[in-house]
Amino acid sequence: MTGYYIGVISGTSLDAADVVLAHAADGDRPTLEATHNHPPPDALRQRLLQITQTRPPIDIRELGQLDRQVADWMADGVLALLDETGMAPGRIRAIGSHGQTLYHDPQPPHPFTLQIGDPNRLAARTGITTVADFRRADMAAGGQGAPMVCGFHQAMLALPDRQRAVINIGGIANLTCLPAGATLEDPRLTGFDTGPGNALMDAWIARHQGRLQDTDGEWASTGRVHEGLLSVLMADPYIRTAPPKSTGREYFHLGWLDHQLAGMPAIAPADIQRTLLEFTAVSIRDAVAACPGRTDEVLLCGGGARNARLRERLSAMLAPTQVITTDDAGIPADWVEAAAFAWLAMRTLAGLPGNVASVTGASRAVILGGIYAPAVVSRPPSPG
């Protein structure tokens, strides 16, 4: 459906809500018109990180309050983008909102996923129809509910004559294998969450240095890979599980890392940071090797694509396959996921499926998400 769409997502890093304005005029290939990065209030970020990392008890009242607070944070981001661009809300067909994942557990007997950020509130605050709750329709069809971005990768980045692999490195890293000429319905189109992206590195540097991230892997570069720890990390059952599979910070968090370190000789914090970077790189390398056929090109996106040390390790490990960022393919690496949710909103309004069943393990392709119209104050009929 031709028109303007907004995509908004906060990932596992919780550093900001990424907001994009996209224009769809050419089938399934929207173009980015504007972007905005909107940090959350610090108290909200800290509480959400605490919940996703340590899973403390949370009562229903607080859950409802957080649902509203996240919606307001994202609404503020959307309104800031509209203000920066001068775009009137009435020109936007829809917002595609991922929300903030609190917990993702796709395993039997009762698989579920929970994203908060009340779409009713988001629609009311912005005056724009909002599409949200994308993951649960896929889970209702037997899928993992993740990754959700593989269809967008196919629409925007597949080539007729070259096989590509797209690696999104957020808090968690995910892979899309794009065989040459693959369509959305092609069973060769595969993907899965590979394991940690930035989540463990971010959490470790936050604990030891109070910083949000290890920019360009600078701290990691001062340490050395601890081979014993790397072997322990790579032996985790999730890394060895065959796809379809998906995971999140509720699995790979500081408590998980502390458990792996228990009983090992003391390791210098910088060496642990370097080993965590290597863990991300090796798990991605092994995932790319699992793509069917020969991969001609690897495209990186997400915050981890800006980590120079991580890019260097991936380039070395995947050689001679070329490793580039999606910037080189026409989509800024920092905004791929947010753009994907603008695309998913467009698909939903058009009555088209958004999941890729060969990726998530769903029984079929399904239309994703619910549609939330902005609240309208009704007026009584005029007398007479």
Rank of each mutant, 00 (worst) to 15 (best):
Gly330Asp: 05
Arg364Pro: 01
Ser283Gln: 14
Pro380Glu: 06
Leu189His: 05
Pro380Ser: 10
Ser378Trp: 12
Thr12Ile: 05
Ala203Asn: 02
Ala158Gly: 11
Arg29Pro: 12
Val282Met: 04
Arg162Met: 09
Ile92Gln: 02
Ile284Cys: 08
Arg55Gly: 11
Thr275Gln: 09
Gly171Glu: 04
Arg313Glu: 13
Tyr372Arg: 08
Ile267Cys: 09
Arg188Met: 02
Ala132Gly: 00
Gly191Asn: 05
Gln260Trp: 11
Cys291Glu: 03
His98Thr: 07
Thr348Cys: 13
Ala141Leu: 10
Thr321Asn: 00
Met87Cys: 10
Gly263His: 07
Thr129Cys: 14
Pro237Cys: 04
Ile128His: 12
Gly127Trp: 11
Val78Leu: 10
Thr360Tyr: 02
Thr194Arg: 05
Gln213Ala: 14
Ala350Arg: 10
Asp18Pro: 08
Arg93Phe: 01
Gly223His: 06
Leu114Pro: 01
Thr295Ile: 15
Pro381Phe: 00
Ile284Val: 15
Asp328Asn: 11
Val282Cys: 04
Pro56Thr: 12
Ala199Trp: 00
Leu66Gly: 13
Gly145Met: 04
Pro119Trp: 05
Thr126Ala: 07
Ala141Phe: 09
Leu344Lys: 10
Leu254Lys: 03
Asn307Ile: 05
Glu185Ser: 15
Asp328Phe: 04
Pro56Phe: 12
Pro108Val: 08
Arg45Ala: 14
Cys150Ala: 13
Met317Asn: 08
Trp343Gly: 08
Val149Glu: 01
Arg55Ala: 15
Pro109Gln: 09
Gly351Trp: 04
Ile267Ser: 09
Trp335Asp: 13
Ala319Gln: 01
Ala308Phe: 08
Val225His: 05
Pro89Asp: 00
Leu102His: 03
Ile172Pro: 06
Glu297Tyr: 06
Ile205Met: 09
